[in-house]
Nucleic acid binder design. Structure first.
Lengths: 394, 394
DNA sequence: CACGTTTGTTAGTAAACCTTACGAACAAAT
DNA sequence: ATTTGTTCGTAAGGTTTACTAACAAACGTG
């Protein structure tokens, strides 16, 4: 490898610092106790995802020694988070193992979904994600403080439905929500700067986590599949939640996922409430779709007209998603909303459009599908958020 | 808060596990020594960003005690990464402080830019980001193993240009590059599955970091400003690099940022080499723009025709970026490429289009600008990558 | 010159995880 | 029935890490 091929070209020139930027700095100091809480979470999460097993199994899985695992498990048992289940049944050489597991019957989680237009929904969820009880309150146009009171009433009612220790409360709220659970802006509910997380935590003396409804829904989906994904939530409006690199994307102004008012295509479109023409919401929102479909009722070619309306909406969604899927190299796009509208021609048209408008080779493994959680996606996601926040690594 | 407002609705229904997903699991066990290396990096980064200061200053800044900082600094001095600069000059009460700093003159970084079509460029960069020396090799259509040899020759030549200890080598390569520095696919160079990082590291016995050129360029920009950003690199092709939540986005198939072949708009467009019509690259790539502009040379209305061509390209870029900026709530969009083409009507049209097609309120603080690093953006980013990889927290 | 302040170091302590060692309990082979 | 090998959980002791407490050195200030 001769050095002659490279030649000195120009005189040195002065630059600034390579990174003046603080955000590349380590987040803060790490003490031994932080390491321990990390390992504690590691044990908990191993138990949660792998199910009942012995301390030795956990040690092998985590890479920690049996000694350390025993110590951590003793601490967790002391707090009631983990329980011993007796000896393993199957016949193997060696001393029989004592099975341990997260106390799956010992805790409930409360999930709240504030994203619907006419009501707040809530549920009691157990640690495995089964919904144990449900409740709801009608909104009746309530806004501001009255809307907050309805949230508190709903939560109060849900807490009365369980006698089990409550791990925490997860809330999916519409609008822009910051990492501290302050609803910066939720026009429909007349909230701006409402410290929802803080107020609920203070009023109920429970851990509370509040996030944007679409982000919460994305958490629910991410729980079931690896890889990066976008969840598109179609309802009265259109919003999205993104998981990139295993983490929810918040955005510089905590407004990530607000794609409802991005203009689609270069050929106009329906007028939107925001004043622009051809916003995604103007094509895809449920009220607009149902109104459009109603126009064809009873007509001769009702079926094909309905089909074409849905396909057009699906194409529009694909047009908006294509740059996002391409730029982020997403592996999964999930739709949430009324299945009778979304699951069919609309979904198919979105898939076709996505395929046609992105580089197919890069996205061969791209999956587009409806959520399997139906209407409960935000409730389930809220539970995931609590589980991850209370038991997981921060 | 009466509980009566909430009512039990349905019977329990069975769900699966809340997260079967491994990716929400903690990354692995944490040992005390990991904590120490974290704190070590914290000290280094504090010194790097804040400049020369006393051990006590570092202690106050990091939250660690003076004792711990002294211990860590002793280790760093022992390795030659940090040096003592003598006593502080200014008159203050108390024992005079001994200033310490990263040894800014003691290290050089090698940066390589493989993204140009006709040549490989490289530079020797000091720790403050100043370019000390440059070199390049002509590509002459080389591909495959011959292209790799040219990289090695360029690196060899650059190493001969510095007598200072080399911290590491950073490489920005075109194509899809995985986190291990394997170039999965770079059609122009005829590379597929080339373990560039591993081979260079083995051949030169130096730390080597290889990443996609646009991602590397994004790192350079992120060094100067906080917040999430997308860097669009316009050259023979069009690619992008994203920083979200302070981290580079790789994508599920390590192909994030590949937006060159996303179709723009709903009204056709120029035919692209990939077969589709109206790809971003077909509108915006440098060869296409220069060819288009050449058509107007000498014409009567050359200036306005040129202007409109550039504006149209800018609008197309805005159309593709709008959904990305909206979905990610980005705070910054940076363009890199020939300033005579990009900086002017094109940039203005992109800005206008972005404003018109997204929700203005959410993106009031959105900044769109040219890079300040010009042609050296990949070289600078490569240096940032090395600095961050060798000194920073992983 | 006494005093307060700041710096950097020494000494000792607490926490966390490790390695090593061991008893208990079992299956399989003898 | 005994031996052998395996596995589990725990105990003891050592290493690493960062902390608190205390102190000498060196400097301005009144």
């Amino acid at each position: 490898m001769p050095g002659g091929a490279a030649q000195l070209l120009t005189a040195p020139y002065a630059g600034g610092s390579l990174f003046a930027n603080r955000s590349l700095r380590a987040s803060g100091k790490v003490l031994p106790e932080h390491a321990r809480s990390h390992n504690r979470s590691l044990v908990l999460q191993t138990l949660y995802t792998e199910g009942a097993q012995s301390r030795a199994d956990v040690a092998r899985e985590t890479g920690l020694t049996r000694v350390t695992v025993s110590d951590l498990v003793a601490e967790l048992i002391g707090e009631g988070l983990v329980v011993e289940l007796g000896q393993r049944e199957d016949a193997r050489p060696g001393k029989p193992a004592t099975l341990i597991d997260v106390d799956r019957t010992g805790f409930h989680i409360i999930g709240l979904d504030l994203s619907e237009h006419t009501r707040f929904r809530g549920a009691v969820v157990d640690l495995d994600g089964s919904i144990v009880a449900r409740a709801e309150v009608a909104l009746d146009g309530a806004t501001g403080e009255r809307a907050y009171e309805l949230v508190a009433e709903l939560l109060d009612g849900l807490l009365a439905l369980t006698q089990t220790r409550v791990l925490g409360v997860g809330v999916g709220s519409p609008g822009v929500v910051d990492p501290n659970g302050v609803v910066r802006s939720a026009p429909n509910l007349g909230w701006s700067g409402l410290a929802l997380q803080e107020r609920l935590a203070a009023a109920f003396h429970l851990p509370v986590h509040v996030a944007n409804d679409a982000n919460v829904a994305a958490l629910a989906e991410h729980g079931t599949t690896p890889g990066d994904l976008i969840l598109v939530k179609v309802g009265h409006g259109v919003g999205a939640g993104l998981i990139v690199g295993g983490r929810p994307v918040l955005g510089s102004g905590f407004a990530a996922g607000e794609i409802g008012h991005v203009v689609v295509g270069t050929d106009g479109g329906p007028r939107c409430a925001c004043g622009k023409h051809g916003c995604l919401e103007a094509w895809l929102a449920v009220p607009r779709l149902t109104a459009e479909l109603a126009r064809f009722e009873g007509a001769a070619d009702a079926a094909s007209a309905r089909d074409e309306t849905l396909r057009e909406a699906g194409r529009r969604l694909g047009i908006v998603l294509a740059p996002v899927v391409g730029a982020l190299n997403l592996s999964e796009v999930v739709l949430s909303g009324p299945a009778e509208l979304l699951d069919g021609p609309l979904l198919e048209a979105t898939a076709e459009t996505l395929r046609a408008r992105t580089m197919a080779e890069q996205h061969r493994d791209l999956r587009l599908r409806m959520t399997a959680f139906g209407q409960d996606i935000v409730l389930r996601g809220a539970a995931v958020m609590v589980l991850s926040g209370q038991l997981g690594v921060s």
